[in-house]
Nucleic acid binder design. Sequence first.
DNA 1: ATCCATAACAGAAATTTTTTCGTTTTTTAA
DNA 2: TTAAAAAACGAAAAAATTTCTGTTATGGAT
Lengths: 150, 150
Amino acid sequence: MDAIDRKILSLLQENAKLNTKEIAEKVGLTLSPTFERIKKLEQQQYIKGYVALVDGGMLGRSITVFCQISLFKHSKELIENFKKEVGSLPEIISCHHVSGNYDFLLKVAVSNMNEYQNFVVEKLSVIQGISNMQSSFVMEEIKNENGWVW
Amino acid sequence: MDAIDRKILSLLQENAKLNTKEIAEKVGLTLSPTFERIKKLEQQQYIKGYVALVDGGMLGRSITVFCQISLFKHSKELIENFKKEVGSLPEIISCHHVSGNYDFLLKVAVSNMNEYQNFVVEKLSVIQGISNMQSSFVMEEIKNENGWVW
DNA sequence: ATCCATAACAGAAATTTTTTCGTTTTTTAA
DNA sequence: TTAAAAAACGAAAAAATTTCTGTTATGGAT
């Protein structure tokens, strides 16, 4: 893992459709060593996978909400249960267990308010152990990198 | 945009390395129409791009923090300035302008506490207009989909 | 029922990309 | 300084993808 490897990661996390030749040019190597480096980065799992970025808005998934969740108490049982439920709800884009004023931060995406209400009332609030919930509606996405290399 | 297109999006957002042949099999079409559909989805920007998912932890980017930011007042000038500054800070993975108890939610990734302190003191707090800041450290990432199709 | 437009099909050709391999260069350590 | 290891190189092959045909099927509208 040297500077060239990082450069390769940085390029691929921007645009995974770059082919080996193009990457080779950009990092200043020829095809073969570049190819070997990429394969190695994949094998070693520096690269976890390749995905297409889909425009949620174009599919009508236009409302995004961040929900702060607090549990009654921090028992292992409640936490494990909460994690399990989160995994099964497709409306939940991301979920982080955090320290601080609340316990979990959810990012939720739905098509409309009705769907959001339904999500909260029927799916989220029925999870046991939740003591408090606070929603912040996203008005604008200013930045959303998926990159970790720069 | 029909059910087959959505299936294609769903497959590609999981794994962009699937080739046309494999996708064709999974959606029950042959190569040519599948190929045309994918190209169309790209042209119409349902697919915004293809990226490699890089393991931040393996690169030492091991601390993730969510920061809630409040501004003194919601003037256009302050907001525009804040957005501009956010764009130039690579530690900020994402930034959303939200409604509710605070104005902006940042996701920040750094290598260690020292770097975080430096980020807060030297880069974030110097942005004009910030009245309040609250940090929540991520203890566990329970879910982090980049998908919008299911 | 028939026509039209759209979508799917099958196959082949052209192009590009990936992969491999032997050789050369560079780096590292003794 | 020299020997061993690692990395880079260049070229060729193998494989896969893209692109292009012309044909057939499907679905709606008249």
